[in-house]
């Protein structure tokens, strides 16, 4: 469904992607693991058209999307949930959702505000609250809900557990599990291996802008050596 081939990109001076290749199949949850600054966010931003790749290609649903503007990519059904949430703090919950609203598309789970509120019950209780007066966990829920309003067939989820208390992270894992069972394809970036293990089918490990490992979560769990080399050092 999402095929990234030989992607190279430059972002500022320090973060450079070299030869990133990955594949996400329909309905899969795939984790992109790596430490801070390894290139996870840059990979996502490049796929999303927010950073222009210097070479390589991104295919989504059989179409080339690399080089297109981010709004075009979003309109093709690829949703993006940024790492730092980027809630519109002056807008209410309902208005935040409105910004994300797009026409429904075939072959993707359709969402209504009410359906989203059943997945994110907290949000239903604060429809008219400005985004700036929500807690970190609530904002994280809202940023995901906002992206779902575009009825994406796949989403890029950048470090959803970042900065959240352990107890909220557990909730988040359940919610993402629920989205997976709706048939949503997810590419998830994480530093938290425990969190990824709860959700993902397969994982890639990125380090210094290169993919260093690819395998199922079970393989990764068994591979002490890889974990030691890329995730803990």
């Amino acid at each position: 469904m999402l095929d990234v081939a030989d992607l190279h990109s430059h972002y500022g001076r320090a973060h450079i992607l070299a030869d990133v290749t990955l594949h996400v199949g329909r309905g899969e949850v795939v984790a992109l693991l790596g430490r801070n600054g390894a290139g996870k966010s840059t990979t996502f931003k490049t796929i999303m058209g927010l950073v222009k790749p210097t070479s390589g290609s991104v295919m989504f649903n059989g179409e080339t999307i690399s080089g297109a503007g981010s709004h075009t990519i979003c309109q093709k059904g690829l949703g993006y949930v940024p790492e730092d949430r980027r809630i519109f703090t002056d807008l209410t919950v309902m208005e935040n959702l409105e910004v994300g609203r797009q026409p429904e598309r075939e072959g993707a789970p359709a969402w209504t505000v009410e359906k989203l509120f059943s997945v994110f019950p907290n949000l239903a209780e604060m429809r008219n609250r400005p985004g700036g007066r929500m807690s970190g966990g609530e904002q994280q829920m809202l940023t995901i809900a906002r992206t779902l309003m575009g009825h994406p067939s796949a989403i890029l989820l950048d470090e959803p557990s970042e900065g959240l208390a352990p107890v909220i992270v557990e909730q988040m894992a359940q919610t993402i599990g629920a989205l997976k069972s709706e048939g949503l394809t997810v590419l998830l970036s994480e530093q938290n291996l425990h969190f990824a293990t709860l959700l993902a089918d397969r994982a890639y490990i990125i380090e210094k802008g290169r993919i260093r490992y690819e395998g199922t979560m079970a393989d990764l769990a068994a591979d002490e050596e890889v974990r030691a080399a890329y995730l803990t050092v």
């Binding site: 927010l50 993006y80 519109f88 002056d90 807008l91 906002r146 575009g150």
Partner: peptide, 17 residues
């Protein structure tokens, strides 16, 4: 609503389509 959102973070508005 879109204009107010873009006032805060125009790049994100673009990424939302």
């Amino acid at each position: 609503t879109l204009v107010r959102a873009a006032t805060q973070d125009r790049e994100m508005v673009g990424a939302l389509g």
